[in-house]
Structures are given as C-alpha cells and as structure tokens.
Design a protein around this nucleic acid. Structure first.
Lengths: 212, 212
DNA sequence: TTTAAAAAAAGGGTTTTTCCCTTAAATTAT
DNA sequence: ATAATTTAAGGGAAAAACCCTTTTTTTAAA
C-alpha cells in the first residue's frame, strides 16, 4: 500500500526529528525529507522530482520563513498541500499563513491523533481547520476591521516619531517643512484618536509599524 | 540495569510526547511522567514518593512557568537536576533560568545525541552547558552589566510616562507635586541616557518595564 | 484641455507641555 | 549633629500641540 509522502520544514532539529518519528508511526504516511528552512525546501524541489503530498511547515525560521515559503509553494506547486505547524497563535500570523495558501494551521500542542487526522483530512478534503483557527477566521471577518490605511510618508513619519528626534529634525530628515510634519502629526492624532506623541508611538508599536 | 528516571515538564503535548519517545529510546533513561506545567509537577511531587533524577523543563508554560518551577525545585528538592529545554535564546531568560538553579540549558534545536550527552553529563558532573550558553554566561560576567536599578516610584512613573498622561496628570495620580515628577523625569533621563519622553518610553518597552 | 475639487505642503501665531538648571525644605541614614 | 537622599518648587527656554489660513500639487470631471 502506497504511503503519502510528507516533508517537514522546521529549524529546530529536535522537534523536526520528533515530528518525523510521529509521522512515520502513522500507517498512511512517511517522511521523505526534513528541511531546516524554506530556502532548503525550494532547493530540494528544484533538484528532485519526488514531490510530497503534504508539507508540515513551521513559521519562525531563519533565511526563509514559513509564510514566504508557503507563498512560493502556492505559486510554483499548487498541488502540494501545506499544513502550518507553529506555536504562534496570534490572529495576525494565522491569517497571513492562511492567506499565503496554507490548508490548515495546527498549534504545536496538538496530540498525535489530531495530527494524523489533520493529515488525512488535508489529503481527502484539501483542508483541515481546528475550532481555534475557525474562530479566528470568523472573528477576522465579523469583527469590523476598520484597519486604518496609512500613506507611505505617514508611515515614515510614525517611525521617526518613535525615536528621540524632534519634529524639526524629522522634517529635515524627510526634506519637508516642519509645518508639513506638524500637519502629518495633526492628521494622525485625529485618525488614531491619540492625544500626544507618546500615544502615537504606542499605537505604532501595538500595530507593528515600529519595533522597539 | 537500573535506568535513570526522567520527568518532562512541557505544555505542548506533541513536543512533550516527542521528547518522551526520544528519551525512552536512550539506553540509560526512561520517562516516568509528563507534566503540562509546573503546578502539575509540584502536585505530583507531593502525592508520590518516586523522585526523578532529571527534569526536562520547558520555560514558557501557563499557570506555573519553568523559572518559578525550577526555583521551587531548587528549594524543596535540591537533589533533582533540572535541565532547561526551551526555544528562548535571549540572554535574560537563560540567565534567570540558571539563577533559578537549572543545571543546564538546551535549545530545542539540539540533536538527539546532544540531549543524551547532556542527560549523562548532568547525572555525572551535575551540570551541562553548551558553548552558546557558556558564551552567554561569560558575556554576562565580562560585559560590565551596569544593570540599572530603579526605585519603586521610578518604575511607577516610567509606566505612566508610557501613557498619554501629561506629567501634571501623573503627578496627581501619584499624589506628588508636578515638580517632583519633573525631578524623577530628569534623574531618569540622565540614568538612562535618553533625551526625551519618547526615549524613556522606548527604554521601558525594550527592558520590559512596560508592555504596550 | 480647461476647470473644479481634493490633497499635500507651508506659514503664522497661541497655548500647553516638556525640559533643564538651580534652590530649598523635609526625610532618612550615619 | 551632619551628611546624603528625597521631595518640592521657581524661572525660563525649547518643543509639542493646536487652530486657522494660504499656496502648490495632484486628481477628477466637464
């Protein structure tokens, strides 16, 4: 009986081997390859004609992360199913991974049996989603997004506003008049409902516009 | 031949089982128990007289984390060796774990063979440190730490300074004169080498005094 | 293609907040 | 009692915040 071929992309060797063992213990699956990162995977795909059925993909990896790699796969090998396997459970990461084309998203604290079920489902139906992920999906649709859009200059200004530069210095850096910068400031304070530069900086950090 | 007894404390079930399998495959070790968090471990210790030789301890766990749990073990069961097993490789976490009494610190990307070596070393010599961890240790000793100490009021002020409150409002909240607050501000600017409130807020976030 | 509307960039000027230096009283430690 | 530390406070300059107006550029429409 033919087994489905699995590739694991995961930079933590111990975990990679461990998942490999578990998957190998399933009747219908066999691990054909372990990759340390996305780059390694894309190279393997180029130099070989053995194509896996499912890829178990970590997200936080050096060199080429899970989201980038999944995008690449969706583009170049749309028939290969990607199942994300990560510790990240924040909405943003989950959504970006699904948008990139992942067929499912498992948290690393799943049980063996769920992993097996997920693999079978992905093969059979093309997708597998736990309740957690479905909730996140629903939430992202229902919860009126609002998602404020920024112009390029506004983003640049916001980042400078998170530094110790004065507005005058920011103006110089951006080759604009201090008065224009003051305009940006005023517009953004209104848009974001903040009272001062500290509020702006905190907004920037919370929304990952600026990383401290 | 008697095998050394290992307990694994790890909230991610998949990883927990996986590590369990690996450890069971070693000749000299057997896993006697898996715990989801520190609390579970302390309860097991109270209700049983089977004491393990080594505990493989994750750090990020709900309810009772690895550092707290290690502190508890160091106090109540100093003979049980704790080997930290984590993805966190930042200096701060490593140091806190070692200070709590861990005998070694492995990153989760270690190979099987290293894990076995670490377990054997911990049993034999009482400790095991990889080069990475030794480097961090050295760095923390050599690199003049400076580690700025804050008074309680300073910490409270710093956190308020990360909000949109004016200094006057902060003064009211803290039942102090605005001029006293201004004093705090000035002292802290000097201590931390920042130029303005934004700099102070960013310092607070970088050093985990304030979480945005 | 000219014209109208909208958005971006600047300017002027006022109020408030921040920042910095210095001094003094009150508290705490030696 | 004396020395440090903490708390409080004044004066003044700079920066930030705010509001309203004008010019320039971009975009859309007639």
């Amino acid at each position: 009986m033919k087994k489905y071929k699995i590739v694991i992309v995961e930079d933590h060797l111990l975990l990679s081997q461990a998942i490999g063992n578990i998957v190998d213990s399933f009747d219908d699956f066999e691990v054909i390859c372990l990759c340390n990162n996305g780059k390694e995977l894309t190279e393997k795909f180029s130099n070989s004609d053995v194509i896996p059925d499912v890829i178990l993909m970590d997200i936080n990896m050096p060199i080429m992360n899970g989201i980038e790699t999944t995008e690449w796969l969706t583009k170049h090998h749309p028939n290969v199913k990607v199942l994300a396997l990560s510790v990240e459970d924040d909405e943003d990461t989950v959504l970006r991974m699904l948008r990139a084309g992942a067929k499912g998203y498992l948290l690393k604290d799943v049980e063996k049996s769920i992993l097996e079920e997920a693999l079978l489902e992905v093969i059979k139906n093309g997708f597998y989603h736990t309740k957690d992920v479905t909730d996140i999906l629903m939430n992202s649709i229902c919860g009126e997004q609002e998602s404020i859009q920024f112009k390029e200059n506004e983003l640049i200004f916001i980042r400078y506003a998170c530094s110790e530069m004065t507005y005058k210095e920011i103006a110089e850096k951006m080759f604009l008049s201090p008065k224009t910068i003051d305009g940006y400031r005023q517009v953004l304070f209104g848009k974001l409902g903040v009272k001062n530069r500290i509020g702006l900086a905190m907004y920037a950090i919370r929304n990952k516009i600026f990383m401290p």
